[in-house]
Design a protein around this nucleic acid. Structure first.
Lengths: 306, 306
DNA sequence: TATCCTTACGGAATTCGTAAGCATG
DNA sequence: CATGCTTACGAATTCCGTAAGGATA
């Protein structure tokens, strides 16, 4: 038994049992992959994969039991390296954060700026993706931390912590009929074409829910992944926008007006997620603390160990 | 990084940092051991061991952090094999039980007989040792289960379950002045030379404690590891014996009399211990259930996962 | 017929053991 | 000077990639 065999088995599950893909992903030859799987199965005396002819289709019952342990071994092997790095040089290393456009563009810059100032030698890699992609990266160990409002809950072996909450707000072009200073209503919004986030992004669920509960069907003419796109089209007069309030900067977004909508849509909570069993460097905890001072290292560690 | 390197590091800690011993224990050459350690340290970029000159003295702070993870990886690697065996052939395999003389000789025979009848193809290895040795074997993964009355609590990563309780009793030669049928007292016992278990064996602690609380100093003329030795010397008239009551068989131990002493010494609880994270085969749970029907698989699994 | 897996085989790399050398108590 | 670790080097083993062959959608 060796680590390469275990890596191959893990990757085979991830790559949907296509050994050619597995070989490519691990930068090795496909026959080598085949042989490693066969050798491991021989050593364990058990078929890990269900086969039809020569194709692999899935895991056997035994394989399903084993894959969890294999994952843990490989996770721990990674942890060895991270722990060693930790002791070798406390303040140098890599911190890989997976997050969404909204967080990367509006919430994180301040945090990252101050983090960079204190840990100039930590290589910080910010990876942008959809909430789904972010979740996958965290699960696969391709990211150390994930920050998003959606999709991070309910993942196995992932622990999430609420960081901060925010509300949606409405943006309209200057001089728009809604810009009266009076409180908005959902009914009023529903009379205009709306531009907002795509499903699965930045609290879109909350928006849909608010309209549904008021038995209104909003006229969503355009859905985008990020607020910058939304603002562009609101400026063009395509409709009114619903965005995260922190995405609006009065000075930068001249020509647009931000209208309060806290009373219309449910509160959104941005969360940070960590994979259980994934060793975090010291500076990772410092980063989390900057994001939300309530999330001390002691608190995070305790939640992870439960 | 490979498994042999990790095994070597683990064994180095266990063998008190003597690489010559490590090589012998792992059936390999000593220079090979040296090199593996060096290679691993190079790969991790961290010294694992404190050295004076060429000698290894102990673990560095980083080494201490790493050793836990290394242990877990190797434990999981073992688990892979056990799980595979489990699926390959449910009712064949090995069950290694570490236990004391008292349990092996008086408590387990019945259980083992019935277990053997149901699982004839399971190779059952009974390893006898002192409570201390038993605990070590369990911790090192050399035994799947440990059964003893002493020393199993308070071990890290070991979970114990009470199996059954028993009392000490007094044995005397036939016609001995104490054999009056009247209840015994500690004071009466203290007037005779006493033969009983060594410290650390079979509830000796309880015996010492009972006398101490009564501010009596018993005259212990001989201490043995097992009841058979004790009985032999009681028969020879060297003194009265204090043994576990289940170690007395009226038919086999003719010439001796068993006197009740439940009211004199505290209750003893025999426990079964399992190492946390050590995968147990199905038949292991069947064995535990036979030992104490209260200890169902569900109950044991739940306690292990806490 | 294109995709995907297995077997076969030769070269590269790793691992292992022996022999020799050096440090320490 | 006996114990214990390191370095050096050749042998054995393992690992890996290419080439060829067979099965399946």
């Amino acid at each position: 038994m060796n680590f390469q065999q275990l890596r191959i088995v893990r990757e085979t599950v991830r790559r949907d049992f296509n050994l050619t893909d597995v070989a490519a992903a691990l930068y090795t030859s496909q026959p080598g992959v085949s042989k490693h799987i066969k050798d491991l199965e021989d050593e364990l005396g058990l078929e890990l994969f269900v086969r039809r002819g020569k194709r692999l289709l899935g895991l056997t019952p035994g394989g399903k039991e084993l894959i969890d342990v294999i994952e843990r071994i490989l996770l721990d092997a990674q942890n060895l390296k991270r722990i060693a790095d930790q002791f070798g040089s406390r303040d140098t290393g890599h911190l890989r954060i997976a997050t969404t456009h909204t967080q990367a563009r509006y919430a994180l810059p301040e945090v990252i700026k101050s983090f960079k100032a204190e840990f100039p030698r930590v290589h910080l890699a910010l990876h942008q993706g959809s909430p789904r992609e972010i979740a996958t990266m965290l699960s696969n160990g391709e990211a150390d931390l994930a920050i998003a409002t959606e999709a991070l809950d309910k993942l196995p072996d992932v622990v999430t912590f609420p960081c901060y909450s925010w509300h949606h707000a409405v943006i309209v072009p200057e001089g728009h009929p809604l810009d009266t200073g009076k409180p908005l209503s959902l009914e009023a919004l529903a009379e205009y074409p709306i531009i907002t986030y795509q499903e699965g992004f930045t609290g879109r669920t909350q928006i849909d829910q608010a309209f549904a509960e008021a038995t209104l069907t909003p006229d969503i003419v355009l859905s985008a992944i990020d607020a910058d796109v939304i603002k562009t089209y609101v400026e063009l007069g395509l409709g009114i926008g619903i965005i995260a309030s922190m995405a609006f900067h009065p000075s930068r977004d001249q020509g647009l007006r931000l209208l309060d909508a806290q009373h219309l849509f449910a509160l959104n909570v941005t969360k940070i997620a960590v994979r259980r069993g994934h060793y975090l460097r010291d500076f990772s905890y410092r980063f989390i603390e900057r994001l939300s001072p309530r999330l001390t290292e002691a608190h995070v560690r305790e939640s992870l160990s439960l």
